[in-house]
Design a protein around this nucleic acid. Sequence first.
DNA 1: AACGTTAGCAACCGCCTGGCG
DNA 2: GCGCCAGGCGGTTGCTAACGT
Length: 448
Amino acid sequence: MARSGGGGLVEGGGGGGGGLKKGPWTQAEDKLLVDHVRRHGEGNWNAVRRETGLQRCGKSCRLRWANHLRPNLRKGPFSPEEERQILRLHGLIGNKWARISSHLPGRTDNEIKNYWNTRLKRRQRAGLPLYPPDIEREIALLRAQNINPFADGDGSASAGGGVSLPPPLLYDAGNPFALPPTVPLPPSGSHSPLINQSYPLLNQMQGMQQQVFHLAGGHHQSPQQQPVFHHHQQHDGGGGGFVSSGLPPLPTRAHELPSNQFDTSSSGSGGLLESLLLGDDHHLPRQHNPTMVKVNSMPALTYRDAGSRQTVHGGAGAGSDSDEASHCHPGEDIHHSAKWNFTFGRTQKTTRCKRDHRLTKHVVASGNRCVSEDFKPAKRRTPSEAGISDMFGVAPGSTPGEWFSTCGGSTAPSPGPSSAVTDEEFNLEMQQFMSLLPLSIDEHSWNA
DNA sequence: AACGTTAGCAACCGCCTGGCG
DNA sequence: GCGCCAGGCGGTTGCTAACGT
């Protein structure tokens, strides 16, 4: 990919665009874009170029806005809860980054995608399971729901798995909005009545947890005694994720996503949860939850100065996830230190060609190299909000509203159609219910 | 200090979809 | 129904900081 090294690259006169710039955005370009959005709102990205003289294609403008300039962006390392949410959602819906990001307020699809690609796929290449066992079980159960022989629909029941499944809990075809019968949880997993009333999804997930026990052996066990799925590290036919032994095979479509996910083509068996996760969420009860943490703060900007190549990060990201991980020693309860460790082997080799100073990446096999816990501290960042503050004339840490009002704009842009939170309250509820799912597995056994 | 390696991430590309005439 | 266009999305590439030797 030909890209500029900071000075920008003007695309040769190809298409009708005629000299569109590529490469990293400059402060001046950002300001043009921000000013435009402040005046006209989002959308009509191709007009940006006409009206501002910005030599960027509309798509590039949209991307820059969505990923870096819009308010409510939350930069910095993912919190442990965000990580778990990503895992769950990815396990359920696959590489639907925009969908996943819609459940992580302030996070962009690109950010989540990068996170997944750079950190979790290491596990896959190293032949390790992609998901922690507890999440794996949740996924497994939902998969089982999807091919439930009791569910009406596409006849995908018991395909290959031979697992006798209990009646569905997640979906009532007759009344998809009805709450399923509340399944008593083990004491450790109890939730408040408010949750049962107001969070049908959580309520169903409770039932799901219970059903996992049935699938795993039919005995009522304490969470600590739950059997662990063993990973055979075989690739499924769909071209992607690993499957766990004893699980019903995931119905797949040709060219489908490389991860565990539902077959959304099988109508009627996808279930309420899937429809919720896939965004069909208009029927969810909305209830403001004052306990939820507000999303911070400044729009985080990154400028790569052409001369110094200094990367300037804005936003409130303090510390790094790896730093946190480095504080978590083997044997610690990673759940409670709110971190699960990533194990990976050598997955790629980068060589620098001295002739042209270009990097070439080669994927190599793990070989005999032992996989190890990832306690490597994160690379240091150079958080400097000064640049952003100077540019927009706002104080670091100010809220998005302050930011836009400070910019002089009377109309704060809408969350935006892409990578944006379409319904913050719903997402916050999602965040809450995800975080409330009982955790039960010693993840060290999983990491081992 | 120099060089190799790795991880993180911004930004591009191509495909797809929906709206519109 | 068809073509065009804008926008959205997922995959991929390439640059660079940080770390390792």
